[in-house]
Design a protein around this nucleic acid. Structure first.
Lengths: 174, 174
DNA sequence: TATTGTTATACTCTATAACTATA
DNA sequence: TATAGTTATAGAGTATAACAATA
């Protein structure tokens, strides 16, 4: 039975025999691994963990009023980011002060220095991404790829936050 | 709380303030998380772990002569896949027999049943991917996206295997 | 002696549960 | 009493190191 006539996909013969394409996760996983491996030295050079960088990124985007909200936003456990916030605060990269209106909550914000650090780290990281990976794509493909990735990522976050909300939801009345 | 003014994703205003685009990892990470979350129920339904599925996928692609090679191919520790192989073998999904030419090594191959299972699982997974995510992309973007992802994934694997080889290499003479 | 596979151990990462303070 | 944050503990996942068989 010759059930897999190779379909002339891009240009060469596809490495695997059966499915017309690999699973998305099968392609995305090694990509992420390499991306993170490439980030690591940059982060190390600035004394940042991956979680710390995630915090800097997200605080820059949207100022946040509780640590729990920040944790959920970056998909971390609320107990996990505490040490991270301690460190960032001690190094003057973020501010963390009790909300006057509800002193249980902590108002979180970036300091100027934190924002500057975030800038230079992100710049270095994105430069590496361009040089190592994106530059290998034809220009018109690159644009489309980035736009599509952005769309899919947003969709993915939607689904994730949806299920997260479902999990967190207690049986309230209607 | 008015924290989520819907962002005009496609071409509207970018959600974050500084960089023209998010880091790749920042986009790829949630995508992978959602992909894996979507795979999980399918795998569960067939009694497969993620690693077991990876093994089935890779054995289908390229028959392999040692467990160590298989482990490296799917980026797992060689000690980790042993339990996985035990299970797959006991269930008759793979064959594992000593190489007559070197009885230290184990020849690994898919059984017919293993191949059939791999097929139906992969089919279900890819169907889910299409419905949940890929269908949201315009047709012409989708093709380009998949082709680009494939390219970048291959590049990433190259880099990874390169550094892996460096790590494994001992200082030889000359 | 070197290599393949295996088992046993230790370590890292992550989540769960218990505690303090504010409300 | 309920919630935000914190601390302490336990669990899952992973890698490291020692071992047996074969070369």
């Amino acid at each position: 039975m010759v059930e897999n006539a190779v379909q002339g996909d891009a240009e060469g013969t596809p490495p695997e025999g059966r499915a017309p394409r690999p699973d998305l996760a099968e392609m995305v996983m090694p990509l992420l691994r390499t991306l993170m491996a490439a980030e690591q030295p940059v982060l190390d050079a600035h004394g940042l963990t991956m979680w710390a960088y995630a915090v800097l990124l997200h605080l820059d985007e949207t100022p946040i009023r509780t640590q729990a909200a920040l944790a959920e936003a970056i998909r971390a456990d609320k107990t996990r980011i505490i040490a991270v916030l301690d460190d960032l605060e001690n190094r003057g990269l973020i501010r963390r002060r009790p909300d006057p209106k509800d002193r249980r909550a902590r108002l979180l914000s970036l300091t100027t220095e934190g924002l500057r650090l975030r800038d230079s780290v992100q710049s270095a990281i994105q430069q590496g991404e361009e040089q190592r990976l994106l530059s290998q794509l034809p220009d018109e493909d690159r644009e489309t790829f980035l736009r599509s990735l952005r769309t899919l990522s947003a969709l993915a976050e939607q689904e994730a936050s949806g299920t997260a909300r479902d999990t967190a939801r207690r049986p309230g009345r209607a």
